[in-house]
């Protein structure tokens, strides 16, 4: 297995009213290709900040972050946009699909920004929507889909650019339990197919689906261990 993420002594300091607050206070870890990692912690632990850094949405105050052998720590806005486009597949808690836009178009969006021609985009988007079991919903707009279906559209969107990592931020936070488990089984299957999955969550039974759990508190890693009692769900398409 090869190393895909290397986080070294990363600090993120915000100054709030003249006072400096370290959201991340010297965090170091590595993630290998093909891992399924859950990052846990109570609110205020710094897990959202970490997710933003891993997702190249932000840069650290100090320390280095290497993604797929590229140092992301000191990139410009446009370089970060390029990294997000090519290397990271985002899945958000609130799904974040474009409103009044079809599933097909939503899934095509990252490919559009990458400059992939329209016919190829359509083909790929259709393929990935079929993969997450939404073959019949290609032309449905977001509001015509259930929460679980919307999140599956988001997963299809995250997969289209063949990213180095899938980065999920509380992916089941807005879903009822049965749909949550449906989504988790998709993640497990994608992981089995070789995708590297990093998931931020505060729910232990969601984290239980991951192979490894990193726990944060007050901006520091307090626990980083393999998950022995892993919950496995079979994905039914």
């Amino acid at each position: 297995m090869s190393e895909i993420i290397s986080v070294n002594e990363v600090k993120k300091i915000y100054s709030v009213g003249g006072q400096e607050i370290a959201a991340l206070d010297g965090v170091s870890f590595t993630i290998q290709k093909g891992e399924f990692v859950a990052i846990m912690g109570p609110s205020g632990s710094g897990k959202s900040t970490l997710m933003h850094l891993l997702g190249a949405l932000d840069t650290p105050s100090s320390g280095t972050y290497t993604l797929d052998n590229q140092d992301v720590s000191a990139m410009s806005d446009d370089q970060l946009a390029e990294i997000r486009n090519h290397k990271i597949g985002f899945i958000f808690q609130a799904f974040n699909l474009l409103p009044r836009t079809t599933a097909l178009k939503n899934v095509s969006l990252p490919m559009m920004y990458a400059g992939i021609p329209k016919t190829e985009r359509q083909k790929k988007a259709t393929h990935f929507l079929e993969l997450v079991g939404l073959k019949d919903r290609l032309q449905n707009t977001s509001s015509q889909l259930s929460g679980g279906q919307q999140q599956r559209v988001a997963i299809a969107r995250a997969l289209t650019m063949s990213p180095s990592i899938l980065l999920a931020d509380e992916p089941t936070g807005n879903l009822p339990t049965n749909q949550s488990f449906e989504i988790m089984s998709i993640f497990q299957q994608l992981n089995e197919e070789g995708h590297t999955v990093i998931m931020i969550t505060h729910e232990p039974d969601i984290a239980a689906h991951a192979k490894r759990v990193i726990t944060l508190r007050d901006g520091k890693i307090i626990k980083d261990q393999l998950n022995k009692k892993r919950a496995v769900r079979k994905h039914s398409k």
Binding site: A81, R84, N85, Y113, M161
Partner: peptide, 16 residues
């Protein structure tokens, strides 16, 4: 704002 944030997080550069 949210839509713009989403587009940027999916790789839309400034000029786009």
């Amino acid at each position: 704002t949210r839509e713009i944030g989403l587009r940027k997080s999916l790789g839309a550069k400034k000029k786009i």
